[in-house]
Amino acid sequence: MLSYSARRIAQAVLVVFAVTTFAFVILRAVGDPARLLVSPEGTMEDLQSLRRVLGLDVPLWQQYVRFIGHSFVGDFGSSFIHGTDAFKLVISRLPATLLLSGAALLIGVPFGMLMGVVAAVNRKKALDQIATFLAVIGRATPHFWLAIMLIMVFSVQLRLLPPSGYGSFAHLIMPAVSLGAGLAATIARLTRSCMLDVLSQDYVRTARAKGLGQDRVVLGHALRNALIPVVTVVGLQLGYLLGGAIITETVFAWPGIGRLLISAINNYDYPIVQSAIIVIASAFVLINVAVDLVYALIDPRVRYD
């Protein structure tokens, strides 16, 4: 188990490094930040001197060597636009993103699993159809639209919740619900199909045959086995959430990583994009490792020796 973990972590570092390098090259192929910063009445010389000040006038490989060298001492550069330490700025946005992701998971996972189990147990009955219908609606509704509708109803019409912002429980409700709804729908559909699969297995029939109650069969025997794919998907979704729910964060003016990233991409603010990619890639990779380790906990067949 230990050597497995060590191997996975080494792989993780490699993945983060590769992603960062890829981002570095792609970013510089996409656009020139000096052109967005130069004064419109400026001259071509002004443009060139901006490139020099930003360190963009030297060949790509030299920029890369400088970037790697600085990265090792924890210096990921200053934001071209804000002039502040890019990595610090990204990290300062992490709490808001973590809070929103956590809240969305807290809404999405229990609701989704409950709906999935209820649907599977009541297969082809009214409850199943209702749950499936809700799940399809949940998947098909664009985040953006749901978010705006929530604001229209709960803020503008009913005046119950603040339309946007950050800082109190009331601010969290609508973003978390709009993000959690889609998540619940995904998990409900997955749980339902996994449960159906497991419920038709021999060992479930055996459990029923030996006289166990419905609750014990469903929760004790079936659900635990149906969880493995669900855990994988929850892990992946959490990775996406940590990358910043860009649309949700934008609509609700939530100060998370996603909004910072999208504005940095729009402004070709390389240092912020690079820092954000390092943070997001690390989170993604770590979650994947964690998911693999959780498998061993819930499924005795999985061992990492």
Partner: peptide, 18 residues
């Protein structure tokens, strides 16, 4: 000053007097 990037959210904030 509050940055509210989405135009319909800005409008909702204005309508609710916040």
């Amino acid at each position: 000053f509050r940055p509210i990037p989405e135009v319909s959210t800005r409008l909702a904030e204005l309508q609710t007097g916040r």
